[in-house]
Simulated assay, not measured.
Amino acid sequence: METEGLFERMRDRVVSGEFAPGQRLRAEQLRSEYGVSATTMREILLRLSTLGLVDFQEQRGFRLPELSVQLRNELTQFRVILESEGASLSIRNGSVEWEARLSAAHHALGHIESRVHVGEPSPELLSLWVRAELDFHRTLIDGCGNEVLKQTHLAVYYRFRQQLITSDSGFYWVPKNIEQHKGIVDAALDKDEALVRRLIREHLLRNLTDPVENYTEKSA
């Protein structure tokens, strides 16, 4: 596996709940899984650490970040800002081609979400959903014309997903996700900027006002 492909695979693994928060990542063990040198794996982990997806300390090695309510709140608030502005700019600047890609991304995500059995997702399905959900939200802002905004959003998204995935790994939010994603797409295609901003805010701020832990307790 080439280095870039290995980096992307490891990035997907550390944000999809495969490793527990705070779990140590041993370069020697991981490199044997992929048949690469320990130096190559260490470089991959160091690269992930620059994105905030892995913690590194001399003499202590690499670990996944611990969960932090404050960090999750800050990342959520930042996502609201970035996606609201990016989607608004995309509505103004986006072409018919962007609209078609947004519809396709939503269709793919909806197909995966419709196959989810709440409470018992497989690791493979969880990883597939993470990629599809990211593709949907990236496509939503892809027509904005601001590369810095898109790059910043991508970095924030991965850290946000890593903080949330452990508590949301049961897919308890899927029924509401399906409804909210459709509302966002419909508003974007109708070129209703104000409604898109409101729906994005409602979609993301539930992680502040009604975290999934509360939802699962109420549903038990």
Rank of each mutant, 00 (worst) to 15 (best):
L53H: 07
D55C: 08
G94K: 05
T40V: 12
Y157N: 07
E193N: 10
V14E: 07
V14C: 12
L82A: 07
F160Y: 14
L205V: 14
L189G: 04
S127T: 13
S88M: 09
E193A: 11
E58M: 12
S88H: 08
L30D: 04
L102V: 04
L46H: 11
P211L: 02
L64G: 00
G119Y: 04
V148G: 00
E58N: 08
C144L: 08
A108F: 14
Q151S: 14
E28Y: 05
Q57D: 04
V185A: 05
R42G: 11
T152R: 01
E99V: 02
K182S: 11
L30V: 03
Y157C: 03
R161Q: 11
E147P: 06
R101V: 02
L67K: 01
A100C: 04
M41E: 07
V80I: 13
M1I: 12
T166L: 05
E28R: 15
I81C: 01
F7N: 06
F136L: 10
Q59E: 15
L53T: 05
T216I: 15
I184P: 00
S127Q: 15
L64D: 00
L46E: 15
D168T: 03
R101A: 10
H137D: 01
L25C: 09
R201L: 07
R47D: 12
E43M: 04
D135M: 14
A104Q: 13
R13Q: 14
Q162P: 11
G183E: 08
A220V: 07
L140H: 01
E124V: 15
P211T: 07
A194R: 11
S16P: 10
G110W: 03
S114K: 13
D192N: 15
I200K: 00
K176T: 06
G5F: 06
L67H: 02
R92T: 15
L140M: 09
N177Q: 06
E66T: 04
R198D: 10
F19C: 09
Y158G: 06
L154D: 04
G86W: 01
V196C: 08
Y215S: 06
L51G: 11
V130E: 10
H111Q: 12
G145N: 13
R161L: 14
L195F: 05
F56H: 12
D55E: 14
T139E: 07
T166G: 05
E133A: 09
R11G: 07
A38P: 02
L53E: 03
W173L: 11
V118L: 12
E97K: 15
L128N: 08
L164I: 10
F56E: 05
I184A: 02
